[in-house]
Design a protein around this nucleic acid. Sequence first.
DNA 1: GCATATTGAAACGGTCCCGTAACGTTTCCA
DNA 2: TGGAAACGTTACGGGACCGTTTCAATATGC
Lengths: 120, 120
Amino acid sequence: MLRPMTISLKPSQALSLWHQVSLSEVRDTAPDLTMRQAAILLTIYLDPPPHTVRGLAEHLGVTKPVITRALDTMGTMKLVTRHRDPRDRRNVVIARTVEGALYLERFADVIIAKAAALPR
Amino acid sequence: MLRPMTISLKPSQALSLWHQVSLSEVRDTAPDLTMRQAAILLTIYLDPPPHTVRGLAEHLGVTKPVITRALDTMGTMKLVTRHRDPRDRRNVVIARTVEGALYLERFADVIIAKAAALPR
DNA sequence: GCATATTGAAACGGTCCCGTAACGTTTCCA
DNA sequence: TGGAAACGTTACGGGACCGTTTCAATATGC
C-alpha cells in the first residue's frame, strides 16, 4: 500500500515531535551532540561524498575551526574518520564509520517511533 | 479532506527532516538553544502548568542547577519568566512569554516546511 | 518554639565550544 | 624557481555549561 503523500504536520504535532525526540536524547545517558555537531554528522551521512572541512564549513555557514573541532570530538566518539586526500595532500576527506551509521540508525528509530505516536 | 493517519516516516525521511531543521537553526544567526534548553522550553509550553524547577528536573532526569541555569539563560532571552509562588514561597513557578510563544511558532513553521518538502 | 525537611539559587572547579588570528604544509602559476 | 594562494590545524582569550556542594529562605511537624 503506497502512500505517495507529502508529510503534513500541524504546529502542535511539529513541536510535540521535536519535544519527544529531544526528551529522549536528554534523558539518555548516551553522549549527545550539539546542534552543530548533529548538522555536520547528518550532512556527512546524507549528502554525497567527498566531504572536506572547507566544504562543510561553507555548507553550514560556519568557520573552519568549528568543523575541525567538531570532527575532533566526533572522531573521539568514533562517529567519523579523517584521511589526507592523496590526490591533493592539502585536503582532508571525512569518511563514515560503522559506529556512526549505527548511531544515526538508532536516532532515526527514535524519530520514527515518536512520529508514529503523535496525536492526530 | 481529513487524513486521520498516523505519521509514518522512513529512516531516510526521519534523518533528512532532522538534518534540514538542524541546518536551518545552525545557519540562522538567531541565538540557538542547546538540546536541554529546547527540551525544557518545549515542556513548559506543551505540558500543562504549573511548572517548577524541581518538577522540570525530575521530568528531564537532570539536576536542579541545570534547570536554574537554563532558566537564567532563557530568561535573558525573554523566552520564559519566573515568579515566586505566593501559596508556597519556596516554589518558583515558570511562566510563558509572548516572545517564547513566537519563537516556538516560528520553529514549528520550519519543521512543517521541511517535513512538507521531504522526498517521498 | 525549635529542629528538620524542602525549595531554588549561588559558589566552585573543570571541561568544552566559540571567534579571531597565526601557523605549517601543499599546490599553483607567472 | 620563487612568491602567492589554498587547506586544515593550532593557539589564545573568553564565555557557557556541567556536576557537586553549600547556602538562605520557607514550610512542616513534634
